[in-house]
Write a protein that binds this DNA or RNA. Sequence first.
DNA 1: TTGAAAGCGATACCAA
DNA 2: TTGGTATCGCTTTCAA
Lengths: 346, 346
Amino acid sequence: MNDVAAAAGVALKTVSRVVNNEPGVNIATAERVQAAIDRLGYRRNDSARTLRSGRTASIGLVIEDVADPFYSGLSRAVEDLALRQGYLVFTGSSGEDPARERELVLAFCARRVDGLIIVPAGTDHGYLSPEFDAGIAAVFADRPPGTGCDADTVLCDNAGGAQAGIRHLISHGHRRIAFFADSPAIFTATERLYGYRQALAAAALPYDEGLVAMGPPEQARVQAGLERLLAAPDPPTALLTGNGRTTVAILRALSALPSKPVRHGGRLTDLVGMAVVGFDDFELADVLGITVVAQDPSGLGRTAAELLFRRMSGDVGPSRRVELPTRIIARGSGEVPPRQGGKGAS
Amino acid sequence: MNDVAAAAGVALKTVSRVVNNEPGVNIATAERVQAAIDRLGYRRNDSARTLRSGRTASIGLVIEDVADPFYSGLSRAVEDLALRQGYLVFTGSSGEDPARERELVLAFCARRVDGLIIVPAGTDHGYLSPEFDAGIAAVFADRPPGTGCDADTVLCDNAGGAQAGIRHLISHGHRRIAFFADSPAIFTATERLYGYRQALAAAALPYDEGLVAMGPPEQARVQAGLERLLAAPDPPTALLTGNGRTTVAILRALSALPSKPVRHGGRLTDLVGMAVVGFDDFELADVLGITVVAQDPSGLGRTAAELLFRRMSGDVGPSRRVELPTRIIARGSGEVPPRQGGKGAS
DNA sequence: TTGAAAGCGATACCAA
DNA sequence: TTGGTATCGCTTTCAA
């Protein structure tokens, strides 16, 4: 900037004014400065700007995994909104590791991001206190903050969504419905289990622990669980999954089962005569004909970003908690009637 | 840092030494400083550090769209490698808009990132010259740089992959093979078209422009193209897509066609008796039984990051160009024999 | 082993 | 409308 000032024959401060479009600069002067800027290929150093002004115009986003379509949809929404406001986004994947979440968050804080959007992996966020004291804004998305932290939160209606999914299956005649979800340590999984139980209770159906399989959505584990259930004396006639990863694992497991004659159309779930509702929509769910409880990952990201920007522009009210609705998208797999007469192919 | 120094009763420089784990500090002193750091909740300001040292320990990543699984896979690989080296990643989606690509890149440069990984949307990268002069490192991924720029590049073997896909279909008896790809303006689409033509020529098959449909992978456009082809007097018996998005659109279009009786298994492509090979693997391709030419998005990201870090640590050799191999994954849809006897159901 | 002083490149504030 | 100067928080360099 010094060089530009020298080249244009003005003071440093005048260049600063031009670069920042501040009012009160003679047009002729501004043009002369601009010419010097272009000629020298000058670009403002935002580190220096940051150091002086205290604002970095950047935010940090910690998610579980960018490669998971749910989180990449969320990411994209955050990014779009941030960019429109002139903010840049640091992105990091925690991989469900609380230590890595903390590391990322603190690294972002050291870079002096103005705000954070966090999908927490850990359950203790006391480590954020000094950062809050230092004036950083934070919003939690998809899962609430753990202990030692109070901040805006945007969630899906997890319990409500699971409840609606089960109600849907019950309305199609199912009474024995399995639930495959992520580890109970994960907030959303537990909430959805709660919704599952509520819906059963509301329909006066018994809660059978044997029908519930929770854990990491690994193919082998899910497949073993499914096979165990199907081999049981009184197998379920329907199944609700607890997230997109699990849905995929279930579909893979179903398609790996010894195939049965197909009756009508090429729908996958017809192969085992089991109704399936997936929690979270996914690409090709329409092609596969899979009924889902759709969440709104973009909405989650957008809302989180909106809340964050509101905080960053000075809102100091009590922390909010927003819950986004889910909706059932019926595509066939959730509308299959219960298979008659015990186990095996129909 | 000043406060910490005062609290610990040492000089600023000593605190700096402790914070940066520099050698030559008395253990007792270091402990006293550390205690003060903890007590005050002090965290180093990386903006100031950057300003003085000139290194930000961050890189910028510009991709087409984080929400596209291909790019989110690439992102994740870049992120992992960067984090392991202590670097943070700014991510931005260009959405195939050259202006937005440029905007993002320049914004990253203003933040003084140490390096850039770019999936270019534009075809002119002369705007990078001043940045290169300023010492920034850049690697292009998935597509080469446009005019006015010479930099390391990591690509997939696009032509070779398409060629292999076509050879695969030819080996299963197909002679009229359609090609659905992205706009010819996109590097990878053109390369793959080239591979398609090469493979046809190598098998002494004619190149029929009527079998090629290139353009944005929008559902309506792809579907119309497919219907036009199927209604033609001499319809293709097989089809190669040019990317994942197009594959999904084709599958959706196929499943939207009036359904035909199913013979064996629930495979989608049996419905129209058309063989399908998709360029780029995707989740559930195994469940749907879709044969693909698999790329390696993680490998692309990893290699790009490796090249970048090599440059950032001082490698000044001539620019490299790495090409990653593709491989065919046969899952059924690409091994369907040509349908006999003209159009309509088999 | 420790410290003092200069300076990175911008902005804030006040003066002209 | 313009300019000068202090300063942001740290690292670098040199001296003690």
